[in-house]
Design a protein around this nucleic acid. Structure first.
Lengths: 210, 210
DNA sequence: TTATTGATTGAATGAATATTCAATGGATAA
DNA sequence: TTATCCATTGAATATTCATTCAATCAATAA
């Protein structure tokens, strides 16, 4: 038998593997039980690891939760950033990609929506959570505002206010997410994306044909 | 000394008074500490009552939280229903009142927003939430759809889809609420209401002048 | 092989918390 | 006044949970 580099079930694994394993388990637990129902014991069981290991790889349960939120935020950011950075895209197309990333199945599965809103629910009194999600929200919102600015200049939409439109988009993003979580039958991913694009079609008819 | 009907500090009070006192304290606690940080001891202290009394007037902590959610939902519903039922209002005016109720200071103070999203975020209460407020949400949404339908008929907006527009409004309502909670400096009540009205102005220019 | 390092375990600990309930006290009726 | 009825209290109980840490195990270096 030749030795393997990656045995099927090694007892030990590099820290990064364990961290991802624990973060994934945390996402599942929060989706199923909410944040208050998410105990270290439940996370450990879900991950197939021991309780002690969670405190070994993360400093505390609190840290594990923060890292989980950071993970989701980074995943979302990567999604739209990768698309938008491609060359040969018009500004309108870039905006279209941002919308489509917002409602990508990988980003807003029911499971992940549940986790996002679990954190939003705590954000009222936890600065940590607010600042983690504000970092990526601001970045995206500023990019949207710039793109919209260019579109306004390009299309001669005299009366349009770029920042206001960007804020409205941001509002629609979150509101549609919430409605998808609460009423999945009525609010689907496709429909949500369509609603945002319809709005853009109203504001910029020459760039987003209806 | 004549006997008073309402002494300044009666030791006992009718159940309804105590219940409201406890619900108010629960709102404050959730806003300050989140649902998981809201202990019966904290609620009792905030209300200036004893722990046992909370379990006496409500069956359990869970019941107290559910009643708190019902209280908020009813308060919101009363607000827009009262305005909309007034006579001599055009359909567009009724819609305007629904928007203004949504962003009324009494309804969406930062404190209460924190409580709403605390409930949205807790998986355990999501079902409770749906059973309590899906009726109320649907009621408002259907009313909006009817009003919009009439406006479309009235204004000859051939291409408009009433249900789609109602859903978009619903999405904006929730999304703007979330953004007001997360970024209070950027999203104010006035601005949020303005954004929804701007959207309506785009869709129905003859009914909602820009 | 043996020693060293670092990952992993889970029982033990202590803190926090929901719920219960026997005792208390104030209001009302007789 | 006296008796009755409830609202009210808060200490006691039982449970749950995060965190710690000494012991174990696997991999790698020597």
């Amino acid at each position: 038998m030749t030795p393997r580099k990656t045995p099927i079930k090694a007892r030990t694994a590099p820290p990064e593997v364990r961290r991802n394993q624990l973060i994934g388990a945390t996402i599942n637990c929060i989706a199923d039980q909410g944040i208050s129902g998410t105990t270290l014991a439940a996370i450990a069981k879900e991950a197939g690891l021991s309780v002690g290991l969670a405190n070994f790889h993360f400093k505390s349960k609190d840290a594990l939760l923060s890292e989980t939120l950071k993970h989701l935020a980074a995943e979302h950011r990567d999604m739209w950033l990768r698309d938008v950075q491609r060359h040969n895209l018009s500004n309108a197309d870039k905006l279209r990609f941002i919308v489509s990333a917002q409602f990508h199945p990988r980003i807003c599965s029911r499971r992940k929506l549940a986790v996002w809103f679990a954190f939003f629910g705590e954000a009222g009194y936890r600065k940590t959570y607010r600042s983690i999600s504000s970092q990526i929200d601001m970045e995206r919102q500023e990019l949207c505002a710039e793109l919209i600015e260019s579109i306004i200049a390009d299309g001669g939409y005299a009366k349009a206010d770029a920042e206001q439109i960007a804020l409205t988009m941001e509002g629609m993003f979150d509101g549609l997410w919430l409605n998808m979580l609460m009423y999945p039958a009525k609010f689907t991913r496709e429909r949500a994306a369509h609603q945002v694009l319809d709005y853009l079609g109203l504001v910029f008819p020459r760039h987003f044909a209806v």
